[in-house]
C-alpha cells in the first residue's frame, strides 16, 4: 500500500517525543513554587516600580531645587552687578513700601542681615519671571548690598533656612559674589554683597 502523506506526517510527528527525563524536568518546573508565583512576581514588579518612583522623586526634587535657587542667585547677582538706578529712595522699609504696590505682597523688614547698615532705596525687578523687590543698602563698612524679596514657593524652591527659627542663611557663590538665601514671612530673601 502506498504511504499517504497525512499518515506519514502523523507518524513522523508522533515519533517525536520528549523522553521521560525531559518530561520529569518540565513537570518539576511546574511544581516549583517560584514558577507559579505570578502574584509574587507581580508584587515584586509593583514594589520595584514604587521604589523606582520614590527614587526618582527623591532624587529629582533635590536636583530641581538647586537648579531654581542657582538660577535665582545668578539673576540676583546679575542685577547686583548691573547697579541699575533706584526707582525710590528711603531709609526704612516702611518708606519704600508705598512704592511697591504691584508686588502682590508687602515688603518685610528682614531679621537678617543685622550688620548695622542702612537702606538706600529700591526698585522693581524680576527673579525667574516673578516680580520682586530689589532693595539696596550699605553695610556698616559702606559696601553695597542688594536685598531681594520674592514670594517663596517651597515646592519648587525646597526647604530654606528661617532666621526666625535661629537658622543661618544658605550661602551660594556666584560670579565671585556670595548670595545669602533664606525665608521670612513666606518670602524668599536673597542678599548679594560686594
Amino acid at each position: 500500500m502506498k504511504p499517504n502523506l497525512k499518515q506519514s506526517v502523523i507518524e513522523h510527528l508522533e515519533s517525536v517525543r520528549l523522553d521521560d527525563a525531559r518530561l520529569d524536568e518540565l513537570e518539576a518546573l511546574q511544581r516549583m513554587p517560584s514558577a507559579r508565583s505570578w502574584w509574587r512576581n507581580r508584587t515584586l514588579q509593583l514594589f520595584a516600580a514604587a521604589c523606582l518612583l520614590v527614587a526618582v522623586v527623591v532624587n529629582w526634587l533635590p536636583l530641581e531645587q538647586p537648579d531654581l535657587l542657582d538660577a535665582i542667585a545668578e539673576e540676583a547677582v546679575m542685577n547686583h552687578l548691573a547697579q541699575t538706578p533706584l526707582e525710590v529712595h528711603g531709609t526704612t522699609v516702611a518708606e519704600l513700601d508705598g512704592h511697591f504696590d504691584q508686588l502682590g505682597f508687602r515688603l518685610v523688614e528682614p531679621l537678617a542681615p543685622a550688620d548695622g547698615g542702612r537702606l538706600l532705596g529700591g526698585r522693581y525687578c524680576s527673579l525667574q519671571g516673578v516680580t520682586a523687590a530689589q532693595l539696596r543698602r550699605h553695610d556698616a563698612q559702606g559696601r553695597t548690598q542688594n536685598l531681594y524679596q520674592v514670594p517663596y514657593q517651597p515646592a519648587s524652591m525646597g526647604e530654606l533656612p528661617d532666621p526666625a527659627l535661629g537658622e543661618q542663611p544658605r550661602t551660594l557663590q556666584v560670579r565671585g559674589l556670595n548670595v545669602d538665601l533664606w525665608v521670612e514671612h513666606g518670602l524668599l530673601f536673597a542678599l548679594t554683597r560686594d
Partner: peptide
C-alpha cells in the same frame, strides 16, 4: 503519497509555515 522516511528527510527543508500547515492539517 510520501513515505515517512522521505518526509523525515525533507522536514527540515520545509519552511516553518509549511510545516505548521502540515501539522494542523494532519494532526
Amino acid at each position: 503519497t510520501v513515505s515517512r522516511d522521505m518526509l523525515q528527510q525533507a522536514w527540515s527543508r520545509l519552511d516553518a509555515f509549511e510545516r505548521e500547515i502540515l501539522y494542523y492539517w494532519a494532526v
